[in-house]
């Protein structure tokens, strides 16, 4: 199908984009890399009356290391983050998860911040942001505010973004010594939407465990350094607590089983990688 008609605004700068949002408010949608929004426009699941195209911002967008955090500006593509030479050291969870995000052909244009703003419950990037405890930076014409990822994603494709705001950057804590990271996913085809995705961050005495694809938003649990049957019990309780539903891709029982199996795999992989 083809998109329904819309007015088009091409922003050359962030200021252009914020001015357009301040004028058009909820009628407008930001177009970043377009790898999620264009399918929705083509299928007419989204019919905004104004498209604010921010793709040109990607030319100047930066990945910045600032103290204990890595800041990824709006416009940085998934391919660029995957190719960033600091990735494995600063954001090992993203190094493991990004190859699962779409295909090489979509990562070339799809942006990191765009995926977070789109808030698809099966998307890998929001899951990783949630497990890391990252923050999103939201800006309007007058000011910027920071929101923790857990408060930003409030429902399926629903976020705390206000109509005049744009997600202008993502702030992620840098990996520290003593941490290990793991990621495991099942989908019908590599690169398709995750049926279940699990991400884990572990230390010698804690587990931070996240699940995507089951709840309306990424769900994060924090446990002590559980092992053996205690870990099985925690994963089982987590799987039942997600409110899994049946759909055409998998029934609820299969999803719970995937959470238990992939969850264990992600946590064990993370344990093997704890850095000194």
């Amino acid at each position: 199908m083809k998109p329904a008609p819309f007015d088009y605004i091409r922003a050359e700068t962030r200021e252009d984009a914020l001015a357009a949002l301040s004028e058009h408010g909820e009628a407008a949608r930001i177009l970043a890399g377009g790898q999620s929004l264009l399918p929705m426009l083509n299928m007419r699941l989204a019919t905004p009356s104004v498209i604010v195209d921010t793709y040109r911002l990607s030319r100047a967008a930066q990945i910045r290391e600032a103290g204990d955090a890595v800041e990824i500006e709006a416009g940085v593509t998934q391919a660029r983050l995957l190719g960033w030479d600091g990735l494995a050291k600063a954001l090992p969870l993203f190094a493991k998860a990004l190859p699962w995000v779409g295909h090489a052909q979509t990562r070339a244009r799809g942006t990191v911040c765009g995926s977070v703003a789109h808030a698809d419950p099966s998307a890998e990037i929001p899951l990783c942001v949630a497990v890391l405890g990252g923050e999103v930076v939201l800006s309007n014409r007058r000011k910027s505010r920071k929101v923790a990822s857990g408060e930003f994603h409030i429902g399926m494709m629903m976020t705390d973004r206000r109509d005049d705001e744009m997600l202008t950057a993502l702030r992620l804590p840098r990996a520290k010594p003593g941490e290990g990271y793991g990621f495991a996913e099942y989908g019908r085809r590599h690169g398709d939407f995750a049926v279940v995705a699990c991400a884990a961050k572990v230390t010698a005495d804690s587990i931070t465990f996240g699940v995507g694809g089951v709840g309306d938003t990424p769900v994060v649990a924090r446990w002590d350094a559980l092992d053996g049957s205690a870990l099985d019990d925690a994963l089982n309780a987590c799987a039942w607590g997600l409110g899994a539903r049946d759909d055409v891709h998998a029934d609820a029982r299969m999803r719970r089983d995937l959470v238990r199996g992939l969850g264990r795999r992600a946590i064990e992989a993370a344990r093997r990688e704890i850095t000194a």
């Binding site: 083809k2 377009g34 264009l38 399918p39 083509n42 195209d53 979509t106 070339a108 244009r109 398709d192």
Partner: peptide, 23 residues
């Protein structure tokens, strides 16, 4: 026309792109 099949893939400014996912 929603980026899954890849039939419409072209190269834009040197990188692969789904031409159905670009205006």
């Amino acid at each position: 026309e929603h980026g899954v099949c890849g039939a419409c893939t072209v190269r834009v400014d040197g990188v692969m792109a789904r031409s159905c996912l670009m205006l």
